[in-house]
């Protein structure tokens, strides 16, 4: 019984990290850019929710989506668009700069009365109550996370697979120049990638703050770094391997968090990152990269 509960915890957190991984992977696909400032979108969503404690959840969630999507589009418009065509190193450093800048803004803006910066989100706290299924007691948030994650995954694959903007994104991810020569609008494709990444970040804010309600300026950083590690472990050159990588790292994190006794919990990060090193030694191209493949599909 406990094993099943561990697995449910793992799948739930894995789903959330999988969503973060898709958000990072989509933008990487069209821009060849790992956006380290992605975590600050999640943090912004968390603060928005915290400030709207007591408001109807629908309003708080809508506001969270509005703020996060706007911030994602703003990142693209102000920082990344002017730098398009700059060297990858320049772009990467820029994402760090945006990340630090936003964290500093959060520190200044959300300093509490006693100098503490944490804000507690209570919007959907009710989802922490458990439902009893047979001999299992499962918190609602775990079920909701998995359902939301699966629905989003299906929606995104439908958009990528069935719509023309999705086709344009897949083409741009493989060969942006040829795509533009064919008339694919670079701005439109990139803005759309950031838009979807914003939706995903907002979703992660809503889901994650139920389980981990204390939002501080570094809230999103930790999530993003762990998800990024997952993305690299899974394989960054395809969207689905990146997603599976994100899922795996979240799954492993939750699982070992459950399995390790409280005295050993301090070793959680060491255990997870130790596993990452082993995986990268054995499968440097990514855990889910095809065993033999010459060509590389980018999404």
């Amino acid at each position: 019984m406990t094993t099943v509960q561990y697995l449910i915890d793992g799948v739930s957190l894995g789903t959330i990290y999988g969503l973060v991984a898709i958000g990072i992977g989509l933008v990487f696909g069209v821009m060849r850019l790992v956006n380290f400032a992605y975590g600050e979108l999640i943090t912004a969503g968390g603060y928005t929710l915290a400030y709207l404690n007591g408001q109807p959840p629908v309003i708080a969630i809508l506001a969270c989506f509005g703020v996060v999507i706007a911030l994602a589009l703003l990142q693209e418009r102000i920082a990344f668009r002017p730098l398009r065509g700059a060297s990858p190193a320049t772009m990467l450093v820029t994402t760090f700069a945006i990340s630090f800048l936003l964290q500093s803004v959060y520190v200044l803006a959300f300093r509490g009365a006693e100098g503490q910066q944490g804000k507690v989100v209570a919007t959907l706290g009710g989802l922490n109550t458990a439902v009893t299924i047979g001999s299992l007691r499962v918190r609602w948030i775990l079920i909701v996370s998995v359902i939301v994650g699966v629905v989003l995954l299906v929606l995104i694959s439908l958009v990528l697979g069935r719509t023309s903007i999705g086709l344009h994104m897949r083409a741009a991810a493989v060969d942006f120049r040829t795509a533009r020569i064919l008339g694919v609008r670079a701005d439109r494709v990139i803005v759309f990638a950031f838009f979807v990444a914003g939706i995903l970040a907002a979703t992660v804010s809503v889901l994650l703050t139920v389980q981990f309600p204390l939002v501080d300026p570094q809230y999103g950083v930790n999530v993003t770094i762990l998800a990024l590690v997952g993305v690299v472990v899974g394989g960054l050159d395809r969207l689905w391997t990146a997603t599976l990588g994100g899922f795996s790292i979240g799954f492993a994190y939750a699982l070992f968090g459950d399995v390790l006794s409280s005295t050993h919990r301090v070793y959680l990060q060491s255990v997870v990152f130790g596993l990452v090193i082993v995986v990268l030694l054995l499968r440097p191209r990514g855990l889910f990269a095809p065993w033999r493949s010459a060509a590389v599909e980018r999404m």
């Binding site: 086709l167 344009h168 897949r170 083409a171 493989v174 060969d175 795509a179 064919l182």
Partner: peptide
Amino acid sequence: FPHLTVEENLRL
């Protein structure tokens, strides 16, 4: 685009 179908290439 090698990983897209012929039909998808045309649609581009």
